[in-house]
Simulated scan of single mutants.
Amino acid sequence: MCGLSKCVTRYLLGMAVADLMVITFVVILYQIINAYFPHSFFNLTIICRCILTMIFISMDCSVWLTVAFTFDRFIAICHQMLRTKYCTEKNVTVVITVVFCASIVENVPYYFIYEPREVANGVEWSCYVKSSFYTLPIWAAFLWLETILSPFAPYVLILLFNSLTIRHIILANRVRSGLRGNSSTVKHTDPEMENRRKSIVLLLAISGSFIILWMVNLICYICVQFTDTQFLDATYNDPFTIAELSGYMLKSLSSCTNTFIYAVSQTKFREELKNVIKWPMVLVATATNCIK
Rank of each mutant, 00 (worst) to 15 (best):
T267R: 15
Q266I: 14
V264D: 10
L273P: 14
S255T: 07
Q266A: 11
K251G: 06
T257A: 12
S252I: 05
A234L: 02
A243V: 06
E272M: 10
Q266H: 14
D233Y: 01
P239N: 02
F231E: 00
A243W: 01
K251C: 08
T241W: 00
N258S: 15
V264M: 14
S252K: 03
C256F: 09
S265A: 15
M249T: 11
L273K: 06
N237S: 13
K274M: 10
F269W: 10
S254R: 07
S265I: 00
T235K: 10
I242N: 01
T267D: 12
C256G: 11
K251V: 09
D238A: 07
Q266P: 09
I242L: 04
F260Q: 08
K274V: 15
T267F: 12
K268G: 11
Y248K: 04
T235I: 13
T267I: 10
K274W: 13
C256I: 10
L245C: 07
Y262D: 05
E244W: 06
T259K: 03
F231A: 05
Y248Q: 08
P239E: 00
I261V: 14
I242T: 06
Y236H: 08
N237Y: 12
K268I: 03
L245W: 14
F231H: 03
D233N: 09
S255L: 07
L250Q: 07
D238N: 08
R270A: 13
Y262R: 03
L253H: 02
T259E: 03
N258F: 15
L250P: 02
F240H: 04
T241L: 07
S255E: 03
K274S: 13
F269P: 13
T257D: 02
A243N: 01
P239M: 00
C256A: 11
T259D: 05
S265Q: 12
S265R: 09
D238G: 08
D233E: 03
E271N: 13
N237V: 07
G247I: 02
T257I: 05
K268Y: 13
L245K: 15
F231G: 00
P239F: 01
C256N: 10
L253Q: 01
T267N: 09
L250W: 04
T259R: 04
S265L: 04
Y248R: 05
S255K: 06
A243F: 03
S254P: 05
N258D: 15
A243S: 05
Y236R: 01
F260V: 14
R270G: 13
S265M: 06
E272V: 10
I242H: 02
E272K: 12
